[in-house]
Simulated assay, not measured.
Amino acid sequence: MIALKAPSAVPALVLAYFAYYGVLGIFIPYLGLFLDGRGLSSYDIGVLLALVTATRIVGPSLWALVAERQGQPLRIMRLGAVLALLGWIFSFFDQGFWLLLLGFASFSFFWTAILPQLEVTTFHFLNDNTSRYSRIRSSGSLGYIVLVMAGGVLLQSLGTESLPYGAALLMLLLIGSLFLLPNIAIASQPEERSQGFGPLLRQPVLWCFMGAAFILQMSFAPFYAFFTLYARDLGYSGIETGLFISLAVLAEIVAFFWMGSLLKRRSYRLVLGCCYGFTAVRWLMLAFLAHSPLWLAISMLLHAGSFAIAHSCAMQFVQHYFPKALRSRGQALYAGFIFGGGGAVGAYAAGILWQDGLGATQTFVVAAATALLAMLLALCLPAQVHPPVSESATDR
């Protein structure tokens, strides 16, 4: 067993992941309902989500560069969380599309300062122990599932306008948890500082991995943007929708808990290829079988592979590919390009295809074809990945 550097950090890390993903448990599933309640069309929702998500393309890298130079990831996380809350306050006011865009864009940009640095900080405290990471990360899934269920009840009883206030309370909890973490300074060694980021970016294996993940994230956009509206149109109540989403996250929690042992000595090509293939099947089930509660529940269970296992494998790829001194920028590149770029392109396309629900089936079919393309690209990856730039300067 690898000893922790700071055992007292673990409860605060658990709380931070719980609160961070708790915010997303309110924001992601129910944002479509909230925006629909504000009178926006599916095209408006797609455009707004695309523009907001686009702020995540450059945000993570900018924050990572500052964190890398300062060696103070906690300072960056705390600043980002406070400013994200200030941006979120704009959503309290019903003043039309442009104020929502300003508020959500500000929130999203500052929110990008948190997760990459939280991942780097967690791996630092755990001495890169991926098994311990997966178990701590599962607290984020727990936060997501609790708030998804609570959100379904809240929105059904109090209406969609309760969403901004619930999310703001979770942000305050997140800010508190970040200030509970012990201060750390992550300083790179002289030989690590001599390495460049550029050579890593010129490797085909990186862009094969990034391209597959980018395309997969595009396929998730209809689910993230419109699933609650889709479920409502199929006749499911808000509480039933929350239970279906919670089932997906419960499967995610179980997968995260066993991730460390599952990924040992497994090839990236095999794991990602299978996960992306399951995702294509999942979207087809949503397209044609979602009217059946049983088949909808089964499709939600596939979230264990399409997100939890795929995400853990991606995190392991980043940890193996980038030297320690460059992992913050590696995490930021992944977050910005995949969740920012892939999410923005997917959200814009989904907004056009959805047609206020008339194009729901076709949209999920396109998402399935997109996930299948991601699977084919993932199958081009090598079984194992080794850093093309050695962590020793003498290897350059």
Score class of each variant (00 low, 15 high):
260 G>C: 11
301 L>H: 08
272 L>W: 08
215 I>H: 06
180 L>C: 05
200 L>Q: 06
233 D>L: 01
192 E>K: 02
186 I>M: 15
195 Q>N: 06
280 A>H: 12
282 R>G: 11
271 V>F: 11
184 I>F: 02
211 G>E: 12
180 L>A: 14
181 L>E: 11
244 F>I: 10
192 E>H: 07
200 L>R: 04
242 G>Q: 03
232 R>I: 00
199 P>E: 04
272 L>R: 02
210 M>P: 07
278 F>W: 11
263 L>K: 01
188 S>G: 13
283 W>S: 09
209 F>I: 09
211 G>S: 08
279 T>D: 13
231 A>P: 02
269 R>T: 03
224 Y>T: 01
272 L>S: 08
254 V>Y: 00
241 T>K: 03
288 F>L: 13
232 R>L: 05
235 G>W: 01
198 G>R: 06
228 T>H: 02
186 I>T: 01
218 M>P: 00
286 L>K: 07
233 D>R: 09
248 A>N: 00
226 F>L: 09
205 V>M: 14
243 L>W: 12
295 W>D: 08
271 V>L: 15
232 R>C: 01
241 T>L: 03
259 M>T: 14
284 L>H: 07
209 F>A: 13
272 L>N: 11
252 E>H: 12
194 S>H: 05
277 G>D: 12
195 Q>H: 07
189 Q>G: 00
281 V>M: 15
185 A>F: 06
192 E>M: 06
282 R>F: 04
244 F>A: 11
301 L>I: 15
195 Q>S: 10
177 S>W: 12
255 A>P: 03
243 L>A: 14
293 P>S: 10
234 L>D: 01
210 M>K: 12
247 L>S: 07
260 G>A: 09
251 A>P: 00
186 I>K: 03
182 P>H: 11
226 F>S: 01
210 M>I: 10
230 Y>K: 05
235 G>C: 08
220 F>I: 04
193 R>V: 02
191 E>D: 14
227 F>R: 00
216 L>G: 00
201 L>A: 05
277 G>S: 15
214 F>H: 04
250 L>V: 01
289 L>K: 10
210 M>R: 06
180 L>R: 15
251 A>F: 08
197 F>C: 05
237 S>N: 06
245 I>C: 01
184 I>K: 06
203 Q>A: 10
301 L>F: 04
214 F>E: 05
229 L>S: 09
215 I>K: 03
195 Q>F: 01
189 Q>S: 15
270 L>T: 14
297 A>S: 15
217 Q>G: 02
301 L>C: 15
231 A>E: 00
287 A>Q: 12
250 L>K: 01
188 S>M: 07
268 Y>D: 05
257 F>E: 02
278 F>D: 00
233 D>P: 00
215 I>M: 09
297 A>V: 09
256 F>E: 13
227 F>M: 14
183 N>L: 10
264 K>V: 06
233 D>G: 12
216 L>D: 09
281 V>A: 14
264 K>I: 11
301 L>K: 03
230 Y>M: 04
237 S>R: 08
206 L>N: 09
180 L>F: 14
194 S>G: 11
239 I>V: 15
286 L>A: 05
248 A>W: 04
274 C>R: 06
291 H>A: 15
